[in-house]
Design a protein around this nucleic acid. Structure first.
Lengths: 130, 130
DNA sequence: CTGCATCCCCTCAGATACTG
DNA sequence: CAGTATCTGAGGGGATGCAG
């Protein structure tokens, strides 16, 4: 029955379950862009810059079979396909929001950290080994 | 917000920035367990099931150099080391909460989906997934 | 903790089908 | 030819885990 056990087979906790769904380099981005508007393949590809066709298609396919998005093929001549979030996917996208905000809020900080890390390889005078 | 740069060098959006920090198979779990309580190395290892020593140490080290956690070595015998979240790490952990909740809320759903996907190889008499 | 063997993820480059 | 969506194969590199 649906007694929602505290710790189900396979998942050590809720976060664990979530991670299985959004695992991968692009899925979080894809999901998050999907809720913001663009849903045609081309739009998505432009939004998630740096992703290759293969990856985009692949991830989209996985998200589809995971019940996060729905693929709609208009079967038209200039190919037209769009992807929309399912209710489940929509709620997931919303759960992603705080992460996005965190990144926005701390972007300067994060950028600085990464910049430093790159610079020490270039010979930074950092009194900072450990 | 007033001083929040729209799109900084390298990051296409906030989510992108965040993902660079929590990239990896274990980091989100580690961070989230860290906020839930105490965390000696051993505790952590028990919490994040399936992780190897090498990976745990490695990820912890990265999180440390990313300013997310702080490593404290008591230099005792028996070795005692603990890791605590920095303010930055703490806020990140909080941003992770909705994701954890999402997983908990939809664990049954997710488990079902994954179960079905695995069953195709076992020949389940399922009433057709579609 | 370091080295080594492995595996999967991801990127690159090229191909297909159809229209204006 | 240009544009859209998708697929295929090859290959590198990073991530992961085991043993010394």
């Amino acid at each position: 029955m649906s007694s929602t056990p505290s710790c189900n087979p396979g998942f050590s906790c809720g976060l664990d379950a979530t991670l299985r769904v959004i695992a991968g380099k692009w899925k979080p981005l894809i999901i998050y862009f999907l809720i913001q508007g663009p849903n045609r393949y081309g739009e998505l590809k432009r939004a998630v810059r740096g992703v290759s066709d293969k990856m985009l298609i692949q991830q989209l396919k996985e998200l589809d079979s995971d019940g996060i998005v729905t693929r709609h093929d208009y079967q038209e001549v200039p190919p037209r396909v769009d992807y929309t979030l399912t209710p489940l996917g929509h709620s997931l996208a919303e759960a992603l929001t705080p992460l996005c905000n965190w990144g926005s809020d701390n972007m300067a900080e994060v950028a600085r950290i990464f910049a430093e890390r790159e610079s020490w390889s270039a010979g930074a005078p950092g009194p900072r080994p450990s």
